[in-house]
């Protein structure tokens, strides 16, 4: 568990020395200068993959955190008030039925590509899910007898929320976060592969795989290396998920 966190923070260290475009050295296979070879603009593939993995992880963490925070807010709100719950439920059904990639595509067509598009995509994907889970949890907590007792003692809603509901929900929220990291990485890769999200100046695992497919006949090393890195990353994260679920089960 710790190991992966160290790796990811290690990945966070190198900054953007990546965009050194050198057209003389396009699509080189691995050599002593560039250990993993170069891409279609002569950038070093090793650095690109480190930066790409970092960008992927940042996008995933930010959007998951965002959807958990908003989902928590809406879910608890819906648990308190029936009116809110009816309204938000209807909105969530609509968010579920309209394909998210379509929303992002419309935004990209009208405004342009960018990191925010991907974060929005992941956010919209996870929000209904988290909202439903948190709402169910909060509802079952609100029905507990000790909440009734505290209410009878004259505690306000905000006091109950902070001191009882949030305290109970917190460990589950952490596990939700960890459980959904592999899924969100897969989503991020798909969105960037299509080219709806980031433009070519910002590497991420999805965009690198996209270039790898495009230049596959000329430079197969791009695709092979980036695929291998993604597989290793996702397997490491699934191990993390398994470990976390064991810890949660023992709680």
């Amino acid at each position: 568990m710790l190991f992966v966190f160290i790796v990811s923070s290690f990945v966070l260290v190198p900054n953007n020395v990546v965009n050194e475009i050198d057209l003389e050295k396009r699509l080189l296979p691995p050599n002593p200068h560039n250990v993993l070879g170069t891409d279609n603009l002569g950038r070093d593939l090793g650095l690109m993959i480190v930066a790409g993995t970092r960008n992927t992880l940042i996008i995933v963490f930010v959007s998951l955190a965002l959807s958990i925070i908003i989902g928590l807010f809406l879910g608890v709100l819906a648990a308190i008030s029936t009116l809110f719950s009816v309204i938000i439920d209807k909105i969530m059904i609509l968010v579920n039925t309209i394909p998210i990639i379509f929303i992002i595509a419309i935004i990209a067509v009208k405004i342009g590509p960018g990191v925010l598009n991907i974060i929005l995509a992941l956010f919209l994907y996870f929000l209904p899910l988290f909202y439903r889970i948190i709402k169910t949890m909060a509802l079952s907590l609100m029905a507990q007898p000790y909440i009734e007792a505290v209410k009878a003692l004259g505690a306000s809603y905000s006091y109950i929320l902070v001191h009882y509901i949030l305290k109970e929900v917190a460990p589950y929220i952490l596990s939700l976060f960890v459980f959904n990291i592999p899924t969100s990485i897969a989503l991020e890769m798909a969105v960037n592969f299509i080219g709806v999200g980031l433009d070519s100046s910002t590497p991420s695992l999805g965009t690198i795989i996209g270039w790898g497919v495009r230049y596959f006949t000329m430079a197969p090393h791009i695709l092979i290396i980036s695929t291998a890195v993604s597989i290793v990353l996702i397997l490491a994260l699934s191990v993390l998920v398994e470990k976390t679920s064991k810890v949660i089960r023992n709680l």
Partner: peptide, 21 residues
């Protein structure tokens, strides 16, 4: 099962492409 279900379909596609070549 955990191996197959963890790897996203896009990575499967890339693996298949490499395998074909």
């Amino acid at each position: 099962v955990s191996l197959f279900s963890a790897i996203p379909s896009i990575v499967w596609g890339a693996v298949f492409l490499v395998f074909l070549s």
